[in-house]
């Protein structure tokens, strides 16, 4: 079932520009040049209920703008959006009752109060019944292990602790969709892991749809069923991570261990990245040869103890897609 349908949205901003220097600064007081920046150019997509969608793109690609339009903060210039039967920017007050948003860079908690006070504010404004609220709060605080933390002032919390509280605050009202804008930014490995498991669990147990933007590829690999890549305001890829790999992987790396000393390695369509007496790293050009054939040849030709095959990392595939689009 489609829960989000976006059709042909566009959004542009007016930006004021000037040349460097004092004289230009003074001139700009009287005469200004504006540039129309197209942040989003004609985007359409849909999201199924219960899906975790990764929304990726380099800085300034338009990710945040799309999220802001989807959450009803911004009006698109044209196009239509329907989410759970609502038009976000027109039915904002009613619509936001059904969503939760975590922005890694912004806080929804009151800085000078303990987080627990903000939770009670959330209870009041989303009109959560006392029973549901307590049950939910207990479950979430246990899941994220923040029972003690929620009583200290938010300003005294570490970033990881605060993010956990932000998550609780955004999920207390059982939203049907949660939007996560860089939720793991600046967190350490353990905290990241915890947040990821939490998102997975919420998605599985409550059937919550998740839209996630991130720069962390590990987040994507751990969580997302499907990804959308956006660059310069247009979608450049839409599909699962696996098909992305299939489509764009151009090489595989083989790490080989030999039984005896090997002086020279010669293979067609391969590049030897590293070669020590008993060890070698070989990059196989997957566009020209089938890596399995290369492995067969290797075993035939050389005395081999162990072979390890690594795919090209998703990070470098995505980098390639961005760069190739920029060339055009």
């Amino acid at each position: 079932m489609e829960i989000i349908t976006v059709k042909k949205i566009k959004k542009s901003f007016k930006k004021y520009t000037r040349e460097q220097g004092l004289w230009n600064a003074i001139k700009s007081l009287f005469q200004r040049e504006y540039k129309l920046v197209e942040a989003i150019r004609n985007i359409s997509f849909s999201v199924e209920k219960g899906e975790i969608l990764g929304y990726l793109g380099p800085n300034g690609a338009g990710k945040s703008t799309v999220i802001k339009i989807l959450t009803g903060i911004l009006y698109p210039d044209s196009g239509s959006i329907e989410i759970m039967g609502y038009v976000p920017f027109d039915d904002r007050e009613k619509y936001v009752q059904n969503i939760g948003v975590v922005m890694g860079q912004k806080s929804t908690l009151s800085w000078s109060l303990p987080a627990i006070d903000s939770f009670y504010l959330t209870q009041a404004i989303y009109q959560i019944s006392k029973k549901d609220f307590e049950k939910n709060l207990n479950e979430l605080t246990e899941l994220l292990e923040v029972k003690e933390i929620s009583k200290t002032l938010v300003r005294n919390l570490s970033l990881g602790e605060r993010m956990k509280c932000e998550f609780i605050n955004c999920i207390l009202h059982n939203p049907k969709i949660i939007f996560l804008d860089e939720p793991t930014i600046g967190l350490d490995v353990v905290a990241k892991e915890k947040i990821r498991n939490f998102i997975k669990k919420i998605n599985k147990e409550r059937g919550t749809t998740v839209i996630l933007t991130t720069h962390d590829i590990d987040d994507v690999e751990a969580l997302c069923h499907r990804i959308i890549l956006i660059d310069k305001g247009i979608h450049v890829y839409e599909g699962s991570l696996e098909s992305l790999k299939k489509k764009f992987v151009s090489y595989k790396d083989l790490t080989v261990e030999f039984e005896k000393k090997v002086k020279e390695i010669k293979l067609d369509n391969c590049e030897v990245l590293m070669h020590k007496e008993f060890k070698a790293k070989i990059r196989v050009n997957a566009l020209k040869v089938n890596p399995t054939n290369v492995i067969k040849k290797l075993i035939d030709k050389y005395p081999i103890v162990d072979i390890n095959v690594d795919d090209e990392s998703v990070e470098s595939i995505i980098k390639k897609i961005y760069l190739s689009k920029n060339d055009k």
Partner: peptide
């Protein structure tokens, strides 16, 4: 600061709150 965005995400009338 851009914090207005988070205020708009709450299901309340902005002015009355």
């Amino acid at each position: 600061s851009g914090e207005l965005s988070t205020s708009l995400l709450k299901p309340v009338n902005f002015s009355i709150s």
